[in-house]
């Protein structure tokens, strides 16, 4: 597992209050009971503060699943 996925996993566990989760790229909000609109807001806030990045509205609204989130994160952290 790469460092970004590992850290992202930790944030998911923390926000959703879970003991374990596998962040497959096709994991989407509909697959996870805890992933409601409130937790989505918390998740974005936690990822932004955890990685020290800021997402644009277009980036966030464009996410369909974890893979999309990671793609955005990778591009942010590279630049």
């Amino acid at each position: 597992m790469d460092a970004i996925t590992e850290k992202l996993t930790r944030i998911f566990l923390d926000v959703f209050d879970l003991d374990a989760i596998t962040l497959r790229d096709d994991l989407a909000a509909a697959d996870l009971e805890e992933w409601d609109s409130l937790n989505h807001v918390k998740l974005v806030v936690a990822i932004e503060s955890g990685f020290g990045v800021k997402f644009s509205t277009r980036e966030i609204t464009g996410w369909k699943n974890v893979g999309d989130m990671k793609k955005t994160l990778h591009s942010k952290l590279k630049s």
Binding site: S37, V41, V45, F55, S56, T57, I60, T61
Partner: peptide
């Protein structure tokens, strides 16, 4: 503002 437009969240968390 992003959170406001997306989630009607005010003020910032």
């Amino acid at each position: 503002e992003g959170l406001w437009y997306r989630a009607k969240q005010h003020p910032a968390p």
